[in-house]
Design a binder for these strands. Structure first.
Lengths: 138, 138
DNA sequence: TAATTGGTTAGCCATGGGGCTAACTATAGG
DNA sequence: CCTATAGTTAGCCCCATGGCTAACCAATTA
């Protein structure tokens, strides 16, 4: 009970394996038994079951046993939470790009104005731009 | 295609580690030197450098050394390709849901018709319908 | 030139992941 | 009742991963 990894850790770790990604892709098309899922893979069943187990503990897959057959289905929640992570990062990234772009536009204007009214001071301003991208809040 | 998969392997594996996800999140806010990146982590530098290296070979991060300082920045391509994967899976999933739903609608109609014209045969149909109501919007 | 700073290389260690076989349980079918 | 089917459990192997220290460049800076 000491070190519980975050759900994202488990979801990404689960999806880092091509076999498991293939299983998820297969389950996107509908539920299936372990045997059906395992069929395309040249792998011993116990090995395959480990993958299923990883997917289950990551929350990506749910399964239920009835009789001697275990049926697996996708639980889209974990998938969505990972997708959310990407979208969140992208939002931050794009916001920064926007801020940067407007900043550069402002600089451009200022530079143009300075050029119009003066002689030549642009070298240092240019360097300042690099510094800013490097670090924002610290 | 197989090439792309192995890249996904690396991207997901890279993101499966909380340290590395934190680095990516930090880099979404702008580029930084290795030292700056390492600062928040209670970890020896060589260990930290391994994470940077993993991120670089996964294609998530680019770095450039000038003088004795190595500056890292995010390369959004890999991030986007992973996000695409999710969106693709979700599309398939949702398409299936739609197909399933129309199928159930068809069943409902048929059941209503059967009920109108016959006695009582609802057992299995009923079970199928419950499955649908269980998850609808997602 | 000497010392400091910022990374890098090399090598060690413990753990965990992904694969296997063999043997076992439990249902379904003949 | 007997056998085949579908998973499951146990245990072994190998190598990748994530952490460490120690020693080593190579730029800056005093």
């Amino acid at each position: 009970m000491a070190n519980q990894l975050s759900r994202l850790d488990q979801v990404f770790a689960a999806l880092a394996d091509p076999t498991r990604r293939a299983i998820v892709m297969r389950l996107c098309a509908g539920e299936a038994s372990v045997g059906e899922l395992a069929d395309p893979f040249a792998m011993a069943l116990p090995s395959f079951m480990k993958h299923i187990h990883v997917l289950e503990t990551s929350g990506l897959v749910l399964s239920e046993k009835s009789g001697r057959v275990r049926t697996c289905r996708l639980s889209p929640d974990a998938l969505l939470s990972a997708e959310d992570w990407f979208q969140h990062q992208r939002a931050i990234w794009e916001a920064r790009l926007d801020r940067f772009e407007t900043y550069v536009m402002k600089l451009k204007k200022e530079r143009a104005a300075a050029k119009r009214s003066s002689k030549m001071i642009k070298k240092t301003t240019n360097k300042t731009i690099n510094k800013t991208t490097e670090r924002k809040g610290s």
